[in-house]
């Protein structure tokens, strides 16, 4: 991944709001994990969230597709406000793809079956059409030849690319990445990041929790730093890395960049 040239010139965004988080608070029991999270994400915008472990990064993006409940505030995704209505939550999840740290592929199904499952059972596509779409995305993540294998037969990097293809098969409007390279061997990180870069080139709205600062520099419109359940600082990558405003951010950056 060339670090010097950004993927696409950061063209002015359309201004259409995709995700709106307003004063979101969350508690685990008495532990206050998210404190007053305010975040607006525009269509086509790419955001990288970083911060020390336990800072609430994952929890924040997991609130967006309601894998986590929150107790206060509101979240609007693509014009629909999240509520407790199960049907409505399922509706929103169809439009929001998610990639997990541990891939979470379905081990009892082949790669192709993993990819066609949701299009067939949720989108009600005919099997043939779903398989065509799945093969197209497997080609895009460069593993069409593994379609008939089971996840357990693939390497970590290949599994993560399948997981990305599986999400894309639902044709989502937003992609959430929850530390997608943290469980991978160093050799495999690049292949997954490359896949994410091509996705960014297509103008996908992306929220990535990651510590890959090279990726943040090339791809992100905005980098957000979280600590202790709060958003400490957010800025364009150039500004963020060269001229961090808060002392906490500077400390964090010095820890992850110089070792």
């Amino acid at each position: 991944m060339p670090e010097s040239s950004p993927v696409s010139p950061l063209a002015p965004l359309s201004g259409q709001v995709m995700i709106e988080m307003e004063a979101v608070h969350k508690w685990y029991g008495t532990f206050h994990v998210l404190k007053d999270i305010n975040l607006t994400v525009q269509k086509g915008e790419r955001i990288v969230i970083c911060g020390p472990s336990g800072s609430g990064k994952s929890t924040t993006i997991r609130c967006i597709n309601r894998l986590e409940e929150y107790q206060r505030g509101r979240i609007v995704v693509d014009g629909h406000e999240l509520s407790n209505d199960v049907k409505q939550i399922e509706q929103i999840r169809r439009e929001v793809g998610m990639v997990f740290q541990h891939f979470n592929l379905f081990p009892h199904l082949t790669v192709l079956e993993n990819c066609v499952l949701a299009p067939i059972w949720v989108r009600k596509l005919p099997r043939k059409q779903a398989e065509d779409i799945a093969m197209r995305y497997l080609e895009r993540v460069k593993i069409p030849e593994q379609a008939k294998k089971y996840p357990g037969q693939l390497s970590g990097g290949q599994q993560q690319r399948v997981a990305i293809a599986r999400s894309l098969c639902m044709n989502p409007k937003i992609m959430l990445f929850d530390e997608p390279t943290s469980a991978l061997d160093p050799e495999m990180i690049k292949e997954v990041l490359d896949t994410m870069v091509t996705l960014a080139e297509d103008g996908m709205t992306m929220l990535c929790v990651t510590h890959e600062m090279g990726f943040a520099k090339t791809v992100a419109h905005r980098v957000i730093f979280m600590d202790g359940g709060e958003i400490i600082e957010q800025n364009a990558p150039q500004e963020f890395f060269t001229n961090p405003r808060s002392e906490r951010t500077r400390l964090f950056l010095s820890q992850i960049l110089h070792h």
């Binding site: 894998l67 169809r94 793809g97 998610m98 997990f100 979470n104 499952l117 949701a118 059972w121 599986r166």
Partner: peptide
């Protein structure tokens, strides 16, 4: 994670 992955894809209970 299996249940979460299924939920994230929009599958119901």
């Amino acid at each position: 994670g299996q249940v979460e992955a299924a939920a994230a894809l929009g599958l119901g209970y």
